[in-house]
């Protein structure tokens, strides 16, 4: 079976700066992989490249069977990215946002169920996103991620902004998604939190994947 993510000597350039300088990475279906490394190592660019948001200008890049160098737009519908930003409209309520992105993605998932699973409290579902706290917005973004029903999750510092119950909830969602065959690529500096979730770690330094380690799940 082909890997979900297959990168060989992949290069991404931001302006004139090579944010990914020939990275190799293979991720199998259902795997949970942690990307770790110092600030500016290229973790976020790697996630954005896999999502088809940043062009891969050299090397091989195939995600979910789509060649990113030929047409990176085709893969986008099948991935879900939880990044540093919310990706939500401030003037729409949480419920309206989740419904809008669900309809945009042509998904059959239930927006109400997605909000339930993301732990979005019923009392804030009718509140404009712009009026919510950072943690509440994060949960709303999580609901959008869930409603998209994507085959590949790309999580960039997913625990940031969440309270303790929110972090536990996120961990449960990642485990449950992986158990159902969803592939998860996760970038985090919170190693004590992220390591128990993953099958494997990849260290990204200077735009390269320096080393891989299999996590011993006790």
């Amino acid at each position: 079976m082909d890997p979900v993510v297959h990168l060989r000597a992949a290069v991404c350039v931001l302006g004139r700066f090579p944010a990914l300088a020939g990275i190799d990475l293979d991720v199998e279906a259902g795997e949970v992989v942690l990307l770790r490394g110092p600030n500016g190592a290229g973790k976020t660019t790697l996630l954005r490249a896999v999502a088809g948001l940043v062009p891969v200008v050299r090397g091989e890049a195939v995600v979910l069977g789509h060649d990113l160098r030929r047409d990176r737009r085709k893969v986008r519908r099948h991935v879900a990215l939880l990044g540093h930003t919310t990706g939500l409209y401030d003037d729409l309520t949480v419920d309206e946002n989740v419904r809008f992105w669900a309809r945009a993605a042509r998904t059959t998932s239930d927006p109400v169920e997605a909000q339930d699973r993301a732990g979005v409290q019923a009392r804030i579902r009718g509140v404009a996103v712009g009026r919510l706290s950072a943690g509440q917005r994060r949960r709303a973004s999580l609901a959008v991620l869930l409603v998209r029903d994507a085959r590949l999750w790309l999580l960039d510092e997913p625990h940031a902004g969440l309270d303790a119950p929110g972090r536990d909830l996120l961990d449960d969602l990642v485990r449950s998604a992986a158990a159902q065959g969803t592939t998860v690529l996760l970038a985090s500096h919170e190693l004590e939190r992220a390591t128990p979730l993953v099958d494997r770690e990849v260290v990204v330094v200077g735009g390269h994947a320096e080393a891989e380690a299999t996590v011993d799940v006790a």
Binding site: R48, L53, R77, G87, V144
Partner: peptide, 13 residues
């Protein structure tokens, strides 16, 4: 605003 452009590109619209 706040990553909406990326969300839109990923949406499949």
């Amino acid at each position: 605003a706040d990553g909406v452009a990326d969300a839109q590109r990923l949406s499949g619209l």
